[in-house]
């Protein structure tokens, strides 16, 4: 085996799941866990905010958009940094690096989810809402039973692309010493000091496989006819 590949092979377990045997999750597995946790959180918070924005007018709506624009206008790395250092400084205590990264990513992504969801709702024809209201459904019932189910199906591709960004953004966790994939890859590189190109190409390939596999999966799922049910 050529020495470059040997480096990868001897560290493959470390790159894939870190020091899991010692009870410390790391590597690719930790990247996936961070992405999933922050993704679920961002989806829930983002949709909730979109619903709030849908029903609110005037000041509440302006505050929501200001908040979203503020987050979107700041580099993600700052958000991670601030959550890690600022939150403990403000409220005392100490939050683990992994948790602070999950919160920062969720916070950052929820703004994008809110924007997408709101425009997905607005993209539906106004006739859908009028038809539902005409039958006596309340505004909330109209949103829950008529508008959201249709908007969410249309939004799957846009949520998936946000999630793919999220997977790649987990690499920024290295600035607060979280042993995710990028972090463990640079550790391996520092330790061996020999084949940085191979190590980081391999790391990049892992991100690519993850994101590519995701969009492939979704494309296959979306090709099936949608048979949504309201039960």
């Amino acid at each position: 085996m050529p020495p470059e590949l040997d480096i990868i092979w001897r560290n493959i377990d470390y790159l894939l799941w870190g020091r899991l045997a010692q009870g410390e999750l790391g590597g690719l597995l930790l990247s996936v866990v961070i992405a999933l946790a922050s993704g679920v959180l961002a989806l829930c918070v983002g949709i909730a905010l979109a619903i709030l924005a849908w029903f609110s007018t005037g000041p509440v709506r302006r505050v929501l958009f200001l908040w979203a624009d503020l987050i979107r206008g700041i580099p993600l790395i700052f958000v991670i940094f601030w959550v890690y250092f600022l939150v403990p400084a403000l409220f005392g205590g100490n939050i683990p690096g992994t948790v602070s990264v999950i919160l920062a990513l969720a916070w950052f992504t929820s703004a994008a989810v809110m924007y997408s969801t709101l425009s997905g709702l607005q993209a539906l024809s106004g006739g859908q809402r009028e038809a539902a209201l005409s039958t006596g459904l309340s505004e909330i019932q109209t949103l829950v039973w008529v508008l959201l189910p249709q908007a969410l199906i249309n939004l799957v591709p846009s949520y998936v692309s946000l999630f793919a960004s999220l997977i790649k953004d987990t690499s920024l966790a290295f600035i607060v010493n979280v042993p995710e994939l990028t972090m463990v890859a640079s550790q391996v590189n520092n330790r061996t000091q020999l084949y940085p190109t191979t190590i980081f190409l391999f790391t990049a390939a892992m991100y690519f496989v993850l994101c590519g596999g995701l969009s492939l999966l979704v494309r296959r799922l979306m090709r099936r006819p949608v048979t949504a049910s309201w039960d």
Partner: peptide
């Protein structure tokens, strides 16, 4: 309550695209 007692039929039908014919009728 007022709207419940008044049926409205639109020019563009406005059926709910994610529901079957029967579900469209049964929702309200």
């Amino acid at each position: 309550r007022l709207r419940t007692g008044i049926g409205f039929v639109f020019q563009q039908f406005n059926l709910y695209g994610h529901l079957t014919a029967a579900e469209n009728i049964a929702l309200a």
